[in-house]
Design a protein around this nucleic acid. Structure first.
Lengths: 232, 232
DNA sequence: CGGTTGTTTGAGGACGTTCAAGTACTGTGG
DNA sequence: CCACAGTACTTGAACGTCCTCAAACAACCG
């Protein structure tokens, strides 16, 4: 451990599998940055100076004008954002707003682009991580286009709980209005939909959600293949 | 030009900027494959054997069960699909259906993964192309979540025409029902929405669309920036 | 020619939004 | 400590958009 920021880098999925040499080089140009809840880390349209890797706390990625926001997704410890904009050197398509206090590791975009061109391990790992992100986004698009609000909410809740069977308790990764936009609906609709899900064993208490049976919720999303399957 | 497939590789955006050595290596393991309209090149859930680079003709990427399809996007000459699944070795999340006769260059996924680990140029280029794809998907998600059907259709038509001003004539990249799903609406709704757009100078004749003024259409999408627009 | 598939059109209904009011929580200043 | 304002959230009623269902038309093909 020759560098003090090395242990932080190792906890980022994007960098974890890299050999020591690559990590050292990244550690030298990286910097730790604190941020506080509800603050903006960067805004849509700005030039990419850094990529952000979250060590502690999380943010929500939003796009579009104020009032007509589209929440893309929530990000937390171990995850990183803005790799695409940084690699291409194009303006951010999205803004990031903190959903809690925390700290992020910042890597200068220019250094990253440099290293990308002569460090196979880093380049290959970037390609793999971007591939995973692609699949996440594809899933989201498929879901928006084929499922209704209740199904999307159910699926979201399941994805937020670590487990896949039995009961679970989870805390929403942001304010309800942000969660609503992440699902492509209005806060009012989220409120009502959450109430509907009470019949399926979902209990709400502030930003804490208790799910009685993950299986029962999952059944709501894909009504056991083979059944009539009436409306959307 | 030591290899007969080299000229084809050079016309694929993913490979075009690569040095000769990388291209040669890819050319040796690649193969040309014909496909015919309405046929499936691969289906959701299958194991990734190849990535597909389109030399001629195009396909539509669809996800989800038959009857509840979600069209992701259309792809044509110069573009490639399935890099993410191939790099990760995970099952395809989508199916590809041809929207015309054509031919594609196939690169074995295993060879690509191999080369990715010892060819910086290839790895870096993959990362860049995946970054571009990421941005396209983000744009699509933002659009679905913030715009109505008419606006999305207008934007889609504009993006399909090469120009950005004056009048334009374009041919839909697939059947109307596929275009509809790409926009997240039903064929019936597309038909009706297309009729509404007649008042905005959009004329339909089979799969040929004539746009009187691209500016007028664009105004429909973003009602002239600067106006009241009430930011909340 | 009848069968199949894609598109159009119409009528009715479901889902989600908008508008509006009311409740609960949080931080501020008296 | 409490009144106050600001924000998030909830709830209700009316509305609009898009979907479903159904029928008709056109193009294609055996």
């Amino acid at each position: 451990m020759s560098h003090p920021r090395l242990p932080f880098l190792k906890r980022i999925e994007l960098f974890a599998p890299l050999p020591a040499a690559s990590l050292e080089r990244l550690a030298e140009v990286s910097g730790l940055q604190r941020f506080s809840n509800h603050g903006y880390l960067f805004r849509e349209g700005e030039e990419p100076d850094f990529i952000y890797c979250f060590v502690e706390g999380g943010i929500v990625l939003v796009g579009g004008a104020d009032g007509h926001e589209a929440v893309i997704d929530f990000f937390g410890p171990g995850e990183s954002v803005l790799l695409p904009a940084a690699l291409l050197g194009l303006p951010y398509l999205v803004s990031a707003r903190a959903t809690s206090d925390g700290q992020a590791l910042l890597i200068p975009a220019s250094k990253l682009r440099e290293q990308l061109n002569d460090d196979v391990a880093l380049a290959a790992q970037c390609a793999r991580v971007l591939s995973r992100h692609w699949r996440v986004l594809i899933s989201q698009i498929k879901e928006i286009k084929t499922h209704g609000a209740a199904e999307r909410l159910a699926h979201f809740l399941i994805s937020q709980s670590e487990k896949t069977t039995g009961s679970a308790t989870l805390i929403l990764p942001g304010m309800k209005k942000e969660v609503a936009t992440r699902l492509g609906i209005k806060p009012e609709t989220l409120s009502r939909t959450l109430k509907k899900l009470r019949d399926y064993g979902v209990d709400t208490d502030g930003d804490t959600i208790r799910i009685a049976s993950l299986e029962r919720l999952a059944a709501l999303v894909s009504p056991s293949p083979g059944v009539s399957q009436a409306g959307s």
